[in-house]
Amino acid sequence: MRNFIGSRSISKISYFCPKSLTEALDFLDNCKENVKILAGGTDVIPAVRSGKLLLIDNINILDIKSIDELKHIVFEEEGLRIGATVTLSEVIESEIVKNNCPLLKKAIDQIGSMQIRNWATIGGNICNASPAADSAVSLLALDASLRLQSKGKSRLVPINEFFVGPGKTKLKSDELLTEIIIPKRNGNSTFIKLGRRNAFTLSLISIAVFVQMKDNVISDIKIALGAVAPTPIRAQNTEKILIGGKITEENLKTAVQTIKEEINPINDVRASSEYRRDMSGELLRKALINLFGI
């Protein structure tokens, strides 16, 4: 029988599938560097097979999918809390998410195909740190925080500070992402994704906008983009231009110009950087027109 790494064979792996969070954190504490955390595996398995991810011999695979403590979706004082191994389908189907966080539902609805969404987890989608992760884009606009736990410790990191580069995050080797917390805020939101075909996993560009109004002016706006920089990013210069004002022909133009200058898209097989730059501006225009009905 073939092994899952295809032709790149590794002679040995250890597989550990704890039922409780404590066991998982103890395991991480003991093994440190020599661990690969696996949830759904929908990113890890193809990455290993294609050689993008090299697993060393005797790697410990820590499968966190059976840990019941990471499967909650609750709405309370703090806001909306979603466990790391909730699948993308469970997020979309949740009434709680639909009622309290339609932006997240809309973004996740457009990730991958149904088969992928049924197995991939929200925590996995974030930790994989793809520049194009649609869940991360919406969570940036929602100002979410991530709970990272290690043995006997727990810290909250704003998602805005979590991503370091493609595939790289602030997660330490003994830490596990356990839940995503989305603060309670009233406002309007929109999400637009540009991709080749719908079920294709990766976005060419995606944009999420969350806006709060007070006395007819924008009191706060968060604009997040995917696939235009090494990590999913917030367009903070553009946000600054829009906060405290109304949407007019004039500042719409300035905002579109600013966002194009602010991003740093790459050339790849899916699209050129110029195309991504221009389209980011257009997507912002479309998003704001959606939101403000102008």
Binding site: G41, I45, P46, D63, S113, Q115, N118, A199, T201
Partner: peptide, 23 residues
């Protein structure tokens, strides 16, 4: 074998998944 084609689809606990992506 990378989750794009669906030829390997099976139902796992009643839901369609790509069996090539499940360990």
């Amino acid at each position: 074998e990378e989750g794009e084609c669906g030829a390997c689809t099976v139902l796992l606990n009643g839901k369609p998944v790509c069996s090539c992506l499940v360990l």
